Computed example of a mutant assay.
Amino acid sequence: MRIASRDIGPEFPPYLIAEMSANHNGDIERAFRIMEVARAAGADALKIQSYTADTITIRSDRPEFQIKGGLWDGRSLHDLYSWAQMPWDWHGPLFDKARDLGITIFSSPFDFTAVDMLEKLDAPAYKIASFEAIDLPLIRHVAQTGKPMIISSGMADATEIAEAVDAARDAGCTELVVLLCVSGYPAPASDYNLRTLTDMQSRFGVLTGLSDHTIDNTAAIAAVGLGACVIEKHVTLDRNGGGPDDSFSLEPDELTALVEASHTAWKALGKVDYGHKSSEVQNVIFRRSLYAVADIPKGALLSHENVRSIRPGWGLAPKHLEAVIGRRAARDIPRATPLAFELIED
């Protein structure tokens, strides 16, 4: 899979997405600054969300439209999304800013009109948010753009994930990543069950990644070790900024640490290789080998008293010890001489 000019897959470093979400806090200059921070930290992409309160919900006083508990306790859905939404007239300036910075930008659309608006901006990819993973008509509409798609699994079960993947593929999506995601804000690491990543890879035949809502980087780095090729984390300028998502987002230095650590984890995966590594070459000589530990005259028997397995590693491998014991020296072998077959009679 490729987004813009960046290849994505197990053979490439993990693709790091800095999710702005609602951390702009209603200030476009703050949004610009988050983009600058993401670029400086080494993130591959900056992601936004495209909806309005009236496209994602409706204003209603009915109980099911009220939020009870959690970060947004006491708000209605319409109030929450009015507070958090990214104004549509910001999208053009944000895409322009991304081009100036040299960072990829794309979005999570929440309805058809958002997709159509993002297409006019030539968005290079689309992300389906976790709560929208069951919105198959939206997934099909995105797939018809022919752009790469990332789907967060969120609360979708295995059947619903399969339906989302099938909907995307049937509608023409050929480049797809599914992110393991826990739709808790924040989410405890113990909820993630990262071993699910390898099952998703085989069960659905997709590239996988992690949408990480934990409060540190441990789960994301561990996910790289299990084959995650995309990591998404919410990013803010200040976790105490008071915005809807600030409290569970990474601050700039933490994003930098995530980029560096996830790349290190990917490099450590490497390939199947039982050979000597570059850092070991100079240390091979410190392995054990067979040495004369006493002077052995020509014709004398080699024994456990005059031959031992010791460090360094210039002599015969220790596995040959029993084969040489009881044989005779082909010439004088001074003490501290590494044994070689030419020093021993046939």
Rank of each mutant, 00 (worst) to 15 (best):
F110D: 04
A156H: 09
A53G: 06
G70F: 14
N283G: 03
T104H: 04
P124K: 01
V230N: 03
G102D: 04
I3D: 00
G146R: 01
A294S: 09
L316D: 05
R2S: 03
E260V: 15
L316H: 06
G275P: 12
I310F: 00
A84Y: 06
M1F: 04
S152E: 10
A40E: 15
P10Q: 03
I17A: 00
R33P: 02
R331Y: 09
D332Q: 06
A167N: 03
V206C: 11
G270T: 13
P63W: 04
P124D: 00
L302V: 06
D79F: 07
G326E: 05
K298T: 09
I34R: 07
D79L: 12
D73M: 05
E322H: 09
K147I: 02
S50A: 13
G184F: 10
A158T: 07
I139F: 07
P244Y: 00
A330M: 08
P93S: 02
H276K: 06
D122R: 12
K277Q: 10
T104P: 04
E260T: 15
G241C: 06
K127C: 05
A168C: 06
H78D: 15
F341T: 04
P137E: 01
V293M: 02
N25E: 13
S82I: 03
A336M: 10
T159D: 12
S211P: 14
G205Q: 10
T196Y: 08
I8C: 06
C229H: 02
T214S: 14
T214A: 05
V182N: 02
A40R: 15
H304P: 01
L138E: 02
D27S: 14
G326F: 01
A4E: 14
S130Q: 08
L255H: 07
A265H: 11
I17V: 15
T57G: 09
M86I: 10
G70C: 12
W88M: 12
A323Y: 08
I151Y: 04
T52Y: 02
S247W: 04
I325H: 02
I8P: 14
R2T: 10
P338Q: 00
L316I: 11
A129C: 09
Q144W: 01
L290G: 02
S249V: 07
W90I: 09
A294M: 12
M200Q: 05
E345A: 12
S21A: 15
T264S: 11
L121R: 03
I333F: 10
L138V: 05
S262Y: 08
T113R: 09
T196Q: 13
V178T: 04
S303C: 09
A222H: 09
L197R: 05
L46I: 15
S60Q: 10
L301S: 07
Q282W: 11
S278Y: 11
Y15C: 04
K298V: 12
E11S: 14
N193A: 05
T208H: 03
S50N: 14
G315R: 05
K267P: 05
G205W: 13
T52K: 07
M35S: 08
N283Q: 07
K120I: 04
A156N: 09
I58M: 08
D332M: 07
P137N: 05
S153K: 15
L138Q: 06
I134E: 08
R195T: 03
S21G: 15
L179S: 00
R59Y: 11
